[in-house]
């Protein structure tokens, strides 16, 4: 049950392999991802977001997001993604996503989503 106040978080270290796999899956071969900036590869924003717990759930239909990318994430960086459910009204939730590296926030955003039944796609 995803209720108001629920908080989920995940931690990962972004690797060169992750950036290459993300490029393959998305088609985002931007030079700063592949060649790097000052010798360091920059993670795709989508890769930075990919560990976000709610977004990975087949039973959660995201209906909107508003994201601010505050700083680049580089290969080798350990990032922590935290999601807080701010409100829930029936099947509709609002949430806040914050991604941090060792020293600062790198991404902050808000979103809305609809929680679907896990088994048949109907609203729970």
């Amino acid at each position: 049950m995803i209720g108001a106040g629920a908080a989920l978080s995940a931690r990962r270290t972004v690797s060169d392999d992750d950036i290459a796999a993300c490029a393959r899956l998305t088609g985002d071969f931007g030079a700063h991802h592949i060649g790097g900036v000052a010798g360091r590869k920059v993670a795709q924003g989508l890769l930075t977001l990919s560990g976000t717990p709610l977004l990975a759930d087949d039973g959660v239909h995201v209906t909107g997001m508003d994201l601010r990318f505050l700083a680049p994430v580089f290969a080798g960086d350990e990032i922590t993604t935290s999601v807080t459910v701010d409100t829930r009204d029936g099947a509709d939730i609002t949430f806040t996503v914050v991604v941090t590296n060792a020293t600062a926030e790198v991404l902050r955003g808000t979103g809305t989503a609809r929680v679907l039944d896990q088994s048949n796609g109907h609203v729970a």
């Binding site: 998305t26 088609g27 985002d28 931007g30 700063h32 795709q44 924003g45 989508l46 508003d66 990318f69």
Partner: peptide, 20 residues
């Protein structure tokens, strides 16, 4: 993801994005 492919095609670094 295909939008991020297009972003990669122009070496785009996102500052803000809003989607519905």
């Amino acid at each position: 993801a295909p939008l991020t492919e297009l972003g990669g095609d122009i070496d785009y670094l996102s500052g803000r994005m809003t989607w519905a």
